[in-house]
Design a protein around this nucleic acid. Sequence first.
DNA 1: GGATATTATTTAACATGTTAATTTTATCAC
DNA 2: GTGATAAAATTAACATGTTAAATAATATCC
Lengths: 156, 156
Amino acid sequence: MTAPEPRDPALGTTRTSLPIMLLRAREAVMARFRPMLHEIGVTEQQWRVLRVLDEGGELDVSTVAHRAAILPPSLTRILKSLREKGLVAIRRDRDDGRRSLAALTGTGRDLILGAAPDSAMIYAEISRLYGMERLDALMAEIDALIGTLQDEPDEN
Amino acid sequence: MTAPEPRDPALGTTRTSLPIMLLRAREAVMARFRPMLHEIGVTEQQWRVLRVLDEGGELDVSTVAHRAAILPPSLTRILKSLREKGLVAIRRDRDDGRRSLAALTGTGRDLILGAAPDSAMIYAEISRLYGMERLDALMAEIDALIGTLQDEPDEN
DNA sequence: GGATATTATTTAACATGTTAATTTTATCAC
DNA sequence: GTGATAAAATTAACATGTTAAATAATATCC
């Protein structure tokens, strides 16, 4: 019975909010991968960490955090749980006692290798549905947006 | 001294992973808004909920969850904290006892109104840096990606 | 009209995000 | 060499993400 409340036209509507759209897009993509991740018993973030270690070999925590887009405090907990699962090994850097180094165990590598075909198939399906060139172009644009926002100084 | 570990070429590199790129993009955008949100003492998610309620008036929890892209269990907690801050009011729907209805309080509306100019300026700055038309095109493409992935059935 | 299924929300439990503070080790200046 | 500083990782504390289960109210079927 009550009429819709008035709203400030200076605020864009949440329907077209850039951060929310990026969130929804990520969710739509991840929904395709989630069944596979559930199957092998790792979370999305744990999977990212495993992949980064597969690509980079033994890496220090800061590098893993940067490449996997995970903040250091989260990564500390994730590495702990991955170690408890026997998927990664962690040791101190002898040359620089401040650093921790993480690497896949044999078990961890096997898990990646086993899941790789499924992962590739899911990505291929996304690429097929949306269009491969179109997807490449979209990712290039997103990359450009990131570059633009990070290079330019904040307006504060 | 150890050489880089071999990796499976079937897995794309994490550098070009679509989910990670969307995550980074969101982070790059939110970094611009974060100082303002910190200023007014609300989190990013709380801000989204407040904006949705400003746009939609009194809404049931499910609708807010959908529009703000927040899962119901998270929203329950967020609404509780917003109520404790005096920014929203919650009551039961008389026509359907299962539903909870949330609405901005006067304080909540004042907070939105006070922050609106800053919010608009930040968005305008992003638009200026990246290009307004380019940003519109990017958002249209992201929207198309979401539509594509949600409409098509899962391949499982 | 009462058993049953469905829907809306919440609770529970665990994982991660986020900021600030702390700890440990290196580095620099002198 | 020693004291101040900086860097890397962790811990702490609180907020949110995520899935499953529980709760409560409505809708449906016979």
